[in-house]
């Protein structure tokens, strides 16, 4: 990022290719609408480009990027209440195609598992979902999640614990 702030466009391209998938999936699974995810994905990179000279390598780049994304997501949540209906959630799930390289029998059971996980994620309260996604998609630790969400370490642990309990409940039904 420092190289890009100094004018090195190739550095930005490398950075972008490395993080585009993570950021996009975080946004898509947080927002549950492709159009919203597309919009915020672009907005997120725009803000990053605009703020390139303010970047300081104190934190990981991923943390900084997801911090911007999280702020945008929270803004969007605030504007979009009430949340999407279960029908809309099902529509999103249908739009997410499964990989082609799976065996039919195994694919069926795995599909069911993935479907349940997706549904569980959709049902999670926003704060728990964001904490969970920051962990599994962004690979962030408790401190980093707390830094991004503005919550203490114990709060983050609590959110994750609740999230896991809800997901487990979905698998037991």
């Amino acid at each position: 990022m420092l190289a890009y702030a100094g004018g090195d466009l190739l550095a930005f391209e490398t950075l972008y290719r490395r993080h585009r998938g993570t950021l996009y999936r975080f946004l898509l699974r947080s927002l549950r609408h492709r159009a919203d995810a597309d919009e915020l994905f672009q907005e997120c990179w725009s803000r990053l480009v605009a703020a390139r000279e303010r970047y300081r390598p104190d934190a990981k780049f991923t943390t900084w990027l997801l911090q911007i994304a999280h702020n945008l997501v929270i803004d969007r949540f605030r504007r979009q209440r009430p949340q999407a209906s279960p029908e809309e959630t099902e529509t999103v799930l249908r739009n997410l195609d499964a990989p082609d390289s799976e065996q039919p029998e195994r694919a069926l059971s795995e599909f069911e598992q993935r479907r349940r996980l997706q549904l569980a994620l959709e049902d999670l309260p926003e704060e728990q979902r964001v904490a969970f996604l920051l962990r599994v998609e962004g690979g962030l630790g408790l401190e980093e999640i707390g830094e991004i969400t503005g919550a203490g370490r114990e709060t983050v642990k609590s959110r994750l614990r609740y999230a896991l309990a809800r997901i487990r409940a979905r698998f037991q039904t």
Binding site: R20, D97, E110, R114, L117, V136
Partner: peptide, 9 residues
């Protein structure tokens, strides 16, 4: 989670 569809921009 990692086996979920890898949505890309």
């Amino acid at each position: 989670y990692r086996r979920l569809p890898k949505a890309e921009p």
